[in-house]
Each structure stands twice: as structure tokens, then as C-alpha cells.
């Protein structure tokens, strides 16, 4: 399935399939010496913040988290991340709840249990909290709480990725 570079495990080699972004991002990628179709190895991915580092042609390249989130790659294994790392439009399934105490019950009460499916609606204008659709209602929770929820990505919100005409890429 298609995944994002930011969701990748360290140590894996992946092929850059595409960019889920405009031409500006492609240029940024090219400036780093990378292009669509290249095979890169992920060296470091802190999963929270800061740039990722990848190996390409035995050279280490650092890619900003913003850009890395737009790099689409192909992967076989299921993509498991914590809920604070998802992007708008992603559809995910809860696989594990790591929160403790009161908050755990609160989240359970809201229907956040293993197996439930969420759709990421948006991040609040200031970046936190995150808003997800769960069952039939909208729930907003802090990134901090989201961090304690492990989810499996079922589908990527590619914000119009498929429908957008992208004349600048080959093919």
C-alpha cells in the first residue's frame, strides 16, 4: 500500500513513489538531490519532530518533516503510528490505547477502543488539538492524548492526490 515517508520504520529501504504536493515541493526534493523513483534507506526517524535522515547513493540527506510527510512510498507491512502523527484525511484503526488513569476512562467513554475506526478531520488552527471523526461524532483531543493512542493507517488522506492533475510529473 501507499504510505508516507514519515510513517516508515528506521532501517528500511523504500522507493519514492510520488509526492502528494505541488511543484514547489518537488523542487525542494530535487534541491536535496532526490527524485521520484529513487530508492532511499531511512536512517533516522524520531517520529515526533525534527527532520528525518535518509541514505541515498551512500550519502546522508536530511529531509524536513514537513516535506517528508508529502513523500509517498510503497510498503507491504501495516503502518502503525501514534495518533498525533497522522495527517488530515487519514483513516485509521485504533490498535492500542497506552493512556492511563482518568484519561484512559475518558477516552474509553468517548468510544476510543481497540478496533474503532477514526477519520482525521483537522488540526485546530493553532496546531493543537486534533479533531477526529469517531463513530458518528466529532471528537477533539490534544496531541498529547493522541500520542498515547496507537493506530493502524487504513487509508491515506491524500487531499485530492488522485484527482489532481499533476502536469509536472512524468507519466
Amino acid at each position: 500500500m501507499i504510505s508516507r515517508l514519515t510513517y516508515c520504520e528506521e532501517g528500511f529501504s523504500v522507493v519514492i513513489k510520488d509526492l502528494n504536493a505541488g511543484i514547489g515541493a518537488l523542487q525542494n526534493l530535487n534541491n536535496l538531490g532526490l527524485n521520484i523513483g529513487d530508492t532511499i534507506k531511512l536512517l533516522e526517524n524520531s517520529r515526533q519532530e525534527g527532520p528525518l535522515s535518509v541514505e541515498f547513493n551512500s550519502r546522508e540527506i536530511r529531509i524536513g518533516r514537513e516535506l517528508a510527510g508529502k513523500i509517498l512510498i510503497e510498503t507491504e507491512s501495516p503502518v502503525i503510528v501514534t495518533l498525533d502523527q497522522v495527517k488530515v484525511g487519514d483513516i485509521v484503526e485504533v490498535t492500542k490505547m497506552n493512556s492511563a488513569g482518568d484519561i484512559r476512562y475518558r477516552l474509553l467513554d468517548m468510544g476510543l477502543v481497540r478496533g474503532v475506526k477514526l477519520k482525521v478531520i483537522r488540526f485546530a488552527p493553532l496546531g493543537d488539538p486534533i479533531e477526529v471523526k469517531i463513530n458518528e461524532f466529532m471528537l477533539s483531543l490534544r496531541l498529547e492524548e493522541a500520542r498515547s493512542i496507537e493506530v493502524k493507517i487504513l487509508e491515506f488522506g491524500l487531499n485530492g492526490y488522485r484527482s489532481k492533475k499533476r502536469w509536472w510529473t512524468k507519466g
Binding site: 482518568d102 475518558r106 483531543l141 490534544r142
Partner: peptide, 10 residues
């Protein structure tokens, strides 16, 4: 000191 949270239904 109990843990802070913001879990609100819209």
C-alpha cells in the same frame, strides 16, 4: 496534580 486533558465533543 492530576493529568490535564482536553477531550471535547464538537
Amino acid at each position: 496534580m492530576d493529568s490535564s486533558s482536553f477531550i471535547l465533543e464538537l
